[in-house]
Design a protein around this nucleic acid. Sequence first.
RNA 1: GGCCCGUUCGUCUAGUGGUUAGGACCCAGGGUUUUCAUCUCUGUAACAGGAGUUCGAUUCUCCUACGGGCUACCA
Length: 471
Amino acid sequence: METKVRFAPSPTGFLHVGGLRTALFNYLYARKTGGKIVLRIEDTDQARKVENAVENLLSSFEKLDIHFDEGPHKNDGSVQHFQSQRLSIYKEHIQKLIDSGDAYPCFCDGSRLETLRKKLSDAKATIKYDRKCLNLSAEEIQAKQETEPFVIRMKIPNEEKVKFYDVVREKVSINCSEIDDQVLIKSDGFPTYHFANVVDDHLMGITHVMRGEEWLPSTPKHVLLYRFFGWNLPKYIHLPLLLNPDRSKLSKRQGDVAVEDYLEKGFLPETLINFVALLGWHPKDDREMFSLKELENEFSLKRIHKSGAVFDLEKLKWMNSQYLMQLPLETVVERSIPFFENANLDTSDKAKLSLIVDATRQRVQTLAEMPEASKMYFTVPVISVDNKELINAPQSRELLQKLKENIENSNIPDGDGFKQIVMNIGKEISLSGKSLFFPIRTAIYGEPKGPDLVLLFNILGKKEVINRLNQ
RNA sequence: GGCCCGUUCGUCUAGUGGUUAGGACCCAGGGUUUUCAUCUCUGUAACAGGAGUUCGAUUCUCCUACGGGCUACCA
């Protein structure tokens, strides 16, 4: 049977890196097995809806080059991928459960439930609904339904242990006595996650449910729903959580969580994919650098871990610096342009820009650091007091003066020629090493330490080098 | 509180009933380089604890501790 997986976010903002990891694993598994991946929007909470969330989500995936086979972006009209558009389907299905006695209406209001929870909590008991509305007569239900708001709850069997198999965690079981009569349909008529999720996964033919570990405790409810309907269970794969440095669930409080944030900070899409793939999964060997295509080949469910993984910014930076150096220069140039423009640096001279990016990419860890690290190629650098002392030393003044005259009077083709002149002058006035190179680099680059003189000359050109030697 | 899940260097992780427990990031030191960066080499650093099974457990079982998740008409 063809595998079919899904990524089912609720549209409450931007794509979260945890969401990216879940989406990526689903995507990789679909590609690996030649199956399909569906994007489904779980917008059943009217209160949490965020404008443009779906557009933002799709745009992030576009940038990361992750594509869904089915979803709201390519809808032929046969299936609706927004849960808010599937209300009639849920209505039809909840009726089946009511008819079979596996679900029942409940009229208890929020304050009663709150009091109940408080009472149970004080008694140190499992917090769950007391089934006050379970045994209402047909007449009572009829009458109440006309005047009072109500929800539909699922009726959890009394004495039973629900067992299921998780690909990562193997056997998991829980006693029904611990499970609450979950609300399936809210009083506004919308389904809860648990109900819509199960109905849709079945109707859409989902074979593998891969999601975050936070869903593990509610999986027995889902298993029970499948049984009530007489449907086959999908395979469950609960992914380990992504964690903050303090090992709590990755959250906004402790740093950036949105994929967009990382992109804006100058991390490359390739880095994000590669990095996140290695959180909770590991290949057979020690290899760490993987393109998306390579991951598609390499991925396997068997190598997913059980325990949570801390999102380590240091390693992310390292990996980004690797991609900065490994990716084709044109790609890095193209991706860096917005960052230069943002810093008001002129990007019109593409040949020069290319040289600059090439010289800078191995000195920075993110695209965002690039303008700062290369602004001296655009404008005459500001030289610090200490460095001024260095170039104003008599020895340095003589050196720089000679150098200027030499360049002005010769036809230097490129940086190699420039360096040759530097070496010759060095010989002439008996300067070498730091005392030769530091003043020159400081004069034209602003700092004694930095890129090779050949590179500097090639980027700046003869005219600008003379200009800077003058100052 | 209850339930569920987890636990190998600080972090990401490999691994096995017998290994000097391997790699990567970070950190430290060396080399390369005119310098910085890159690159490269070396080093520091881990099987949570206790029982049991076994000739032998980091590896299997149980218990404890610790950590996390869930405990909504949120997902």
